[in-house]
Design a protein around this nucleic acid. Structure first.
Lengths: 196, 196
DNA sequence: AGGTCTTTGGAATGATCATTCCACTATAGT
DNA sequence: ACTATAGTGGAATGATCATTCCAAAGACCT
């Protein structure tokens, strides 16, 4: 019953997600979102209710199609000893590649946390969940890397790796060298045999 | 010659700085800046030329009155062994205090790095310089803390501490617990005797 | 083929934005 | 006191913002 949509919702969300990623929530105008998705205001509002609704869909897409695929093997219950190192090696290559598509824009969620939207409870919760997911995955990786280490050492290493990643994601926006230095520090923590 | 200003420039800059800190460059409207400073548009534009000019003055004030005083003893040529630990202890107290005035807003420069303004060359350079200053101070602190350690270990520790601070400054906007965990990890790196 | 329901196009809306302009006020030097 | 100079008040400007509305378009069902 009724007319059918002339576009694929998933494609529209992804296009919008890249605009939000590149320009931030407040910086992304409805005009630029219409341009990127190829939809006009009516369709966008009909499908997502508001700019904020579109943003929420973009965040979900970001988690599902960017964050989780990147985490990859760290999500499995059985984690390889070099899984966390592999994560940072892959990250380093992405950050170093000048043709890297959206990476000079850092992380959609980190950027949002630093924006005015951070004061929105739903957004704050999304960032908390994002960080918790990252922390849990890194903790598994840390425990697999240093099987003889103590739990609090694993916690500290995971915390440190999360911070070095967040720092890289912030700095890549203004200084690629600094971002790479941050990732290298993480790799150094993971390749040095310093279990006492 | 001519009329004299009815306000103190330094006070106006500080008030504006706090608005930018709290709401970000794009989120801070000229109306709210006028309200905070007590000056009207004419005076603001006469004194600073533009919103951007006012923001530049705010960044300078932030570095001079917030960042550098906090760095304190780490700026001296001779650094105490516990200076870096002291820095993070002081930071921890500030972050934990619920009455902390502007700290739930993180860092003016980190927030700016995550905003659309990061693509401005002048702003990017300011963030780079900020991070370099932080890194240099922390490097002195790391070397003083582990006098027998190798230079690259000092580098790694400084890099790690910068990242843990940046991460705390981001996370404090959405999750104070996570921010404190980040600072605690830094303290753990500094209080554990793990020089091989 | 007709009716019903959903999607779409495009213009319109009202709010808010940074910025400018001009008249008015006040000070310092002569 | 007069004048040159500089700061201030307040309204006006034009651009851009998210959002809404209505009429036209298209697809399924009977």
């Amino acid at each position: 019953m009724g007319r059918q949509t002339a576009y694929v919702r998933e494609d529209a969300v992804r296009s919008a997600r890249d605009v939000f990623w590149r320009e931030g929530y407040e910086g992304a105008s409805m005009a630029s979102l219409q341009r990127a998705t190829g939809l006009n205001a009516s369709s966008l509002y009909h499908a997502f209710g508001s700019k904020r609704g579109l943003f929420d869909a973009a965040v979900e897409d970001y988690l599902e199609r960017v964050v989780r695929p990147g985490l990859g093997s760290l999500q499995d219950p059985a984690v390889a000893a070099d899984a966390l190192e592999g994560y940072f090696r892959a990250a380093r290559e992405l950050f170093a590649d000048p043709s890297g598509r959206t990476l000079p824009d850092g992380c959609l969620l980190v950027n949002t946390a630093c924006s005015g939207l951070a004061r929105d409870d739903g957004i704050a919760e999304a960032v908390r969940a994002y960080r918790a997911e990252l922390g849990a995955a890194f903790l598994r990786g840390a425990a697999a890397r240093f099987p003889t280490g103590a739990a609090d050492e694993h916690e500290r290493l995971a915390e440190t790796c999360v911070a070095l990643l967040v720092s890289a994601l912030v700095m890549t926006r203004v200084d690629r060298g600094a971002a790479l230095a941050s990732l290298d520090a993480a790799l150094s923590h993971l390749t040095t045999e310093d279990t006492p």
